[in-house]
Amino acid sequence: MKPYYLLPLLFLFCIACKKDKQEQKGNIQINFKNVVNGVPLTLNTANYTNANGETFTVTTFKYYISNISLVKMDNSTLRIPDTYFLVDESTAASKNISFQAPVGEYRGISFKIGVDSTRNVSGAQTGALDPVNGMFWSWNSGYIMAKMEGASPASAAADKTLTFHIGGFKGNFNAVQNVDLVSPISLNVGLQRHPQLTLTADLYNWFTGINLIRFSDNATVHVPGELAWKISMNYRTMFRITDVTDL
């Protein structure tokens, strides 16, 4: 007697094995390196010069990275759920983030600088989105997407400070910006290929590119609006993938 009754079980087992293989995941790590016009960013002490020739120092530099997606070889995108990170130059650990993704070959990565509208109106949150991190205005104005503070002799502020708190998630001045970066990313657990990407973020781009920002004219942004939006249009170009290696 042939064990035909085992065939359905074998079929189900094969399907389960195939599903497990398809759903196999690995780890991707991103290391952020903040610079100013190519020079490593150093808080509080180093002097830099913007595109208008105005010197400045930086005391605070933070930005949200969220809604990460991987771009497949056919140009379709794979959204990675629950990816909300706050990169803070003063906290070394925050500049190294990681997430799980299905194994495969990818041609690039995309993400938002800032926090999407849904999370802006979702009430009190925890982790990177906790208001205790100092990146939240109010339930009406929402999150500060990116923050730069410092000082400049050219500052229009009476105390010569620079305060750029960039936010706004509504209407024509939505400061949530999309970033798309192209670079081969190979994630293969069996071959021990767990990619580590280095993303360089250049603060110099905040004040030049699409819109030239002069500290002598504008040294303070505290609310959503046209100026915040103009700076966000500039800094969406600040990221470059400068290295990809396997852990």
Rank of each mutant, 00 (worst) to 15 (best):
4 Y>M: 06
9 L>M: 10
22 Q>C: 09
26 G>N: 04
28 I>V: 15
30 I>Y: 00
32 F>V: 08
34 N>D: 14
41 L>R: 07
47 N>G: 04
49 T>L: 12
52 N>A: 15
53 G>E: 06
54 E>D: 08
57 T>H: 06
60 T>L: 03
62 K>H: 03
66 S>F: 06
71 V>S: 09
73 M>I: 13
76 S>K: 15
77 T>V: 14
81 P>I: 06
81 P>F: 11
83 T>S: 14
87 V>C: 01
88 D>N: 15
88 D>R: 11
92 A>E: 11
93 A>Y: 03
93 A>I: 07
99 F>N: 09
105 E>Q: 14
105 E>I: 09
106 Y>M: 10
109 I>M: 06
111 F>Q: 03
117 S>H: 10
124 A>T: 13
130 D>G: 00
132 V>N: 07
140 N>Q: 09
144 I>M: 01
145 M>L: 06
145 M>C: 04
145 M>P: 00
146 A>K: 05
149 E>H: 12
152 S>Y: 11
161 T>F: 02
162 L>N: 04
164 F>W: 02
169 F>L: 01
176 V>W: 01
187 L>N: 04
190 G>S: 13
193 R>D: 07
195 P>T: 01
199 L>V: 14
200 T>S: 15
201 A>N: 12
208 T>Y: 15
212 L>D: 15
216 S>Y: 07
217 D>K: 09
218 N>F: 11
225 G>W: 00
233 M>A: 12
233 M>K: 12
237 T>R: 10
238 M>R: 03
240 R>H: 13
241 I>S: 02
243 D>F: 00
247 L>G: 15
